[in-house]
């Protein structure tokens, strides 16, 4: 009986010691990398997280480490690299919260790296797999992606859906949707510049295309240049310098005339793009405010 007890107790002691060793090893696996991250050594932390991915046999640990590595790379501004690294974890089918995090981070990094279509596809997948309501950051990211893709109608529906899920006050929902409509209407009106139309205007009335494109200074300069070269042509013909009038008068005139038509189109395109940027910035700002409002709510 005595030996029996000793044997059992020894077994328990040895197994317990080894189990504790294993457990603490699993907990400590991120310690070095986490410390580097906390100290601001993001490049070194990313390497250590990659080492964990390389050495670990647990899919969960690998996904966790990949997410932490993505965080380090985001701190370094390497969104493209974070995105390609996260791609490895997209097939993970384990823990739901980890899976959601992988999809969100992948969509976020894709958006930041300029792959908005891919970000949108990932968010659609996320919405399909995980039922609503989602966290605010997911709604916000989708809003920003849709703004970037200029899917205005989808964006409105998405905003309405977000509000329905979180804002219990109907009047506030209506007010927010109205504010969105106002920003969009104003922005789309400003976007109604047609580069082709600007060119046509300058063909018939020099400088008017530039005015239409919103560049009055260039319009005046171009119209004045054409008038000056025509005047020089007239003066030279009047004084009998026929050859000179052709090359030194009509030559510059045709350059200013055709150059003016081209410039009007280019300016219209440039201004249209810049107004589109302004609209997208205004909408992004609006969505951040909506999120802040809902969080306060």
């Amino acid at each position: 009986m005595k030996w029996n007890n000793v044997f059992c107790l020894t077994c328990i002691f040895l197994c317990a010691t080894h189990s504790i060793e294993k457990l603490s090893a699993a907990e400590d696996v991120f310690e070095k990398a986490n410390t580097l991250f906390a100290d601001g050594y993001f490049f070194e932390a990313a390497i250590e997280y990659e080492r964990i991915i390389f050495l670990s046999e647990s899919p969960e640990v690998r996904v966790q480490s990949n997410l932490k590595k993505a965080e380090s790379l985001k701190q370094l501004g390497s969104f493209g690299k974070a995105r390609s690294d996260l791609q490895r974890s997209l097939n993970y089918r384990g823990n739901d919260s980890l899976r959601l995090e992988v999809l969100y981070q992948f969509a976020f990094c894709s958006f930041m790296a300029g792959f908005s279509f891919e970000a949108y596809a990932t968010l659609l997948h996320l919405r399909n797999v995980f039922k609503e309501p989602h966290e605010h950051r997911i709604y916000l990211l989708e809003s920003l992606v849709l703004t970037d893709l200029m899917h205005w109608e989808d964006l409105r529906n998405h905003l309405q859906n977000w509000m329905v899920n979180y804002a219990e006050n109907e009047s506030w929902t209506q007010k927010t949707l109205q504010a969105y409509d106002d920003i969009l209407d104003k922005g789309l009106r400003a976007l109604e510049i047609d580069p082709e139309r600007a060119g046509i205007l300058s063909t018939f009335l020099p400088g008017s295309g530039q005015f239409y494109a919103g560049e009055a200074g260039w319009g005046i300069l171009n119209a004045f240049s054409q008038l000056a070269s025509l005047a020089a042509f007239g003066v030279m013909v009047y004084n009998g310098y026929y050859i000179a009038s052709f090359f030194a008068g009509l030559g510059p005139f045709q350059s200013f005339y055709f150059g003016g038509i081209r410039q009007a189109g280019d300016l219209a395109t440039k201004n249209k793009n810049s107004r589109l940027n302004e609209l997208q910035t205004a909408l992004a700002q609006f969505f951040f405010e909506v999120e802040a409002g809902l969080l306060d709510y």
Partner: peptide
């Protein structure tokens, strides 16, 4: 060639001392 003809035209009309010819 165009610049040459222009200069010739100014020379023909105003002579070698004409400012337009000199510039051209």
């Amino acid at each position: 060639a165009a610049l040459g003809f222009t200069s010739y035209d100014f020379y023909r009309g105003g002579g070698a001392k004409s400012p337009m010819f000199i510039i051209s």
